[in-house]
């Protein structure tokens, strides 16, 4: 995508965010609404300037957003699955799975190395948070009762 089109979209998104924020804030009581409402308008105006500037003299050179799509998307995707699994499998099982699978997904093939590193790492996290600090972390659903 060219820089121009990106900036038009960017400015548009911010302008829309600003306007909706201003619209919502207009409903707030008295002084508590004035400030967010004006901020909303300021964002809308600045967003519009970004978009208009891009229309008038935006460069038509392409600008990369994702440097390497497969790796970036894999990381974000597996990261999202990880966060979704934390409340189900519990923090430690989900984390161990993440440390084991993500390097492999990115093309790391030294399985023993991965396994040992994952074990040491999860062990350290466990010692710090569960043993020393005694912080309650999400537990697997089948254990919480």
């Amino acid at each position: 995508m060219t820089e121009r089109r990106q900036d038009i979209i960017l400015g548009g998104v911010f302008a829309a965010t600003g306007l909706s924020a201003a619209y919502i804030a207009a409903g707030y009581r008295g002084a508590s609404g004035i400030y967010p409402m004006s901020l909303g308008y300021v964002i809308a105006i600045l967003g519009a300037i970004v978009a208009i500037k891009a229309m008038l003299r935006g460069s038509s050179e392409p600008r990369e957003i994702i440097r390497k799509a497969p790796q970036a998307l894999l990381t974000v995707g597996i990261g999202a699955i990880y966060l979704a699994l934390v409340p189900i499998l519990g923090f430690y099982i989900a984390s161990a799975l993440l440390v084991l699978t993500l390097p492999a997904a990115l093309g790391f093939r030294r399985l023993l190395f991965t396994f040992v590193t994952a074990a040491i790492f999860v062990g350290i996290v466990w010692v710090i948070f569960s043993v020393i600090l005694e912080k309650p972390l999400p537990m697997p659903v089948w254990i919480s009762y």
Partner: peptide, 28 residues
């Protein structure tokens, strides 16, 4: 892991037995 073990033990026994309360950490 202490808690996990305790929790597993509790599951194995069946429903938590209150006579033993408290048998794991309390979160406040």
């Amino acid at each position: 892991m202490k808690y996990v073990a305790l929790a597993l033990a509790a599951v194995a026994v069946g429903t938590p037995v209150l006579a033993e309360y408290p048998e794991r950490a309390i979160e406040v």
